[in-house]
Simulated assay, not measured.
Amino acid sequence: MLEEKSFAVRVFPAQHRVNKGVQTLPMTAAMIEANEAENADIARGLKRQDPELLDRLIETYQHRLMRYLTFLTGKREVAEDLFQETWMRVLMRGGQYNGKARFDTWLFTIARNLVIDLSRKRTMASLDELQDPTKDERPFEIAIDGPSPFEQFCSREDAAEVSAVLLELHASYREVLVLRFHEEMALEEIAAVTRAPLSTVKSRLYRGLATLKPQLEKLRRERNQGRKPAVTGGFC
């Protein structure tokens, strides 16, 4: 367990400050109140279909949403289409957002539902796997100003290869890794987005890291031996 936590911090170095099991500063009452007020403002603006609010939301969340959709689908072109459709749903169904949950949690839930709808129509292989392949629920606890954690990670020389390794993971594992370490969502928020029990989210996170680890170790051994890593793509 501790070994997997240490591995997560090394692979996603900028995210360790928000992981459970690692010391973090708790949100103050003022911060919680400010977040609740912001969510309430967004809810009111969406109900009246405020175009300026929508522009601000797109500017704030566009990179995160596109990154999530690209990792989830494994196809940039598909992600771009779903990106546009997601914001159309936000505009059309904004009245359904009540401000009780964080806006990004609601936004990612809309995006995920669109991905699932598309997978049913196209039988997209990379998305047929969104159901957890195992019943074992072994637990594992573990627009932004400036570069995002993912962008900081991508500044490393092996970023493209690691991105490609992520794309090779089972879709259900890949999704929780992206939401946890790239989007810095709490486990409870991931459960809300994926509509999975918290125990299942923990299991997928643990197994995703356990699957990712040997792939990355193999990649780094090949690099140290002067061989070209055996990956075919990747993105940041």
Results as ranks from 00 to 15, higher is better:
Met1Cys: 05
Glu3Leu: 13
Lys5Ser: 10
Lys5Asn: 07
Ser6Ala: 12
Phe7Arg: 05
Ala8Leu: 05
Val9Asn: 08
Val9Asp: 08
Val9Phe: 06
Arg10Lys: 11
Arg10Ala: 07
Val11Asn: 04
Val11Gly: 02
Pro13Tyr: 03
Ala14Tyr: 04
Gln15Lys: 13
Val18Phe: 13
Asn19Arg: 12
Gly21Arg: 10
Gln23Asn: 11
Thr24Lys: 08
Pro26Lys: 02
Met27Asp: 10
Ala30Pro: 00
Met31Cys: 08
Asn35Lys: 11
Glu36Phe: 13
Ala37Leu: 15
Ala37Pro: 04
Asn39Cys: 12
Ala40Glu: 10
Ala40Ile: 05
Asp41Arg: 14
Asp41Gln: 10
Ile42Arg: 05
Ile42Gly: 03
Arg44Cys: 05
Leu46Glu: 03
Leu46Gln: 03
Lys47Pro: 01
Arg48Ser: 06
Gln49Trp: 14
Asp50Arg: 12
Pro51Tyr: 02
Pro51Asp: 03
Glu52Trp: 07
Asp55Val: 00
Glu59Phe: 11
Thr60Leu: 10
Thr60Glu: 11
Tyr61Gln: 02
Gln62Gly: 04
Arg64Phe: 08
Leu65Glu: 06
Met66Arg: 13
Met66Pro: 04
Tyr68Trp: 13
Thr70Ser: 12
Phe71Val: 03
Gly74Asn: 06
Glu80Cys: 07
Glu80Phe: 15
Glu80Gln: 13
Asp81Trp: 09
Met88Asp: 09
Arg89Ala: 15
Arg89Pro: 02
Arg89Trp: 12
Arg89Asp: 12
Val90Trp: 00
Leu91Lys: 12
Met92Asp: 09
Gly94Met: 03
Asn98Gly: 11
Lys100Ala: 08
Arg102Cys: 05
Arg102Ala: 11
Phe103Gln: 04
Thr105Gln: 03
Thr105Leu: 05
Thr105Asp: 03
Phe108Arg: 05
Phe108Cys: 01
Leu114Arg: 07
Val115Asn: 07
Asp117Pro: 02
Leu118Asn: 10
Thr123Val: 11
Met124Pro: 01
Leu127His: 10
Glu129Phe: 07
Gln131Ala: 14
Asp132Trp: 12
Thr134Gly: 11
Lys135Arg: 12
Arg138Trp: 10
Phe140Gly: 07
Phe140Val: 06
Phe140Asn: 02
Glu141Val: 11
Asp145Gly: 06
Gly146Ser: 02
Phe150Arg: 15
Phe153Ala: 11
Phe153Ser: 09
Cys154Val: 01
Ala159Ser: 15
Glu161Phe: 07
Val162Cys: 06
Ser163Glu: 01
Ala164Thr: 06
Ala164Cys: 15
Ala164Leu: 11
Leu167Cys: 09
Leu167Ile: 01
Glu168Arg: 15
His170Arg: 09
Ala171Gln: 04
Ser172Lys: 04
Tyr173Asn: 05
Arg174His: 01
Leu179Asp: 04
Leu179Ala: 08
Phe181Trp: 12
Glu183Cys: 13
Met185Asn: 15
Glu189His: 03
Ile190Ser: 04
Ala192Gly: 08
Ala192Ser: 12
Val193Asp: 00
Ala196His: 08
Leu198Pro: 00
Leu198Met: 00
Ser199Ala: 15
Ser199Asn: 10
Ser199Gly: 09
Ser199Glu: 09
Val201Asn: 00
Lys202Met: 08
Lys202Gly: 06
Ser203Gln: 09
Ser203Met: 10
Arg204Asp: 00
Tyr206Gly: 14
Tyr206Pro: 02
Leu209Cys: 08
Leu209Met: 14
Leu209Asp: 07
Ala210Arg: 15
Lys218Gly: 09
Leu219Ser: 00
Arg221Leu: 15
Arg223Ile: 13
Arg223Asp: 02
Gln225Ser: 14
Thr232Gly: 15
Cys236Gly: 05
Cys236Asp: 04
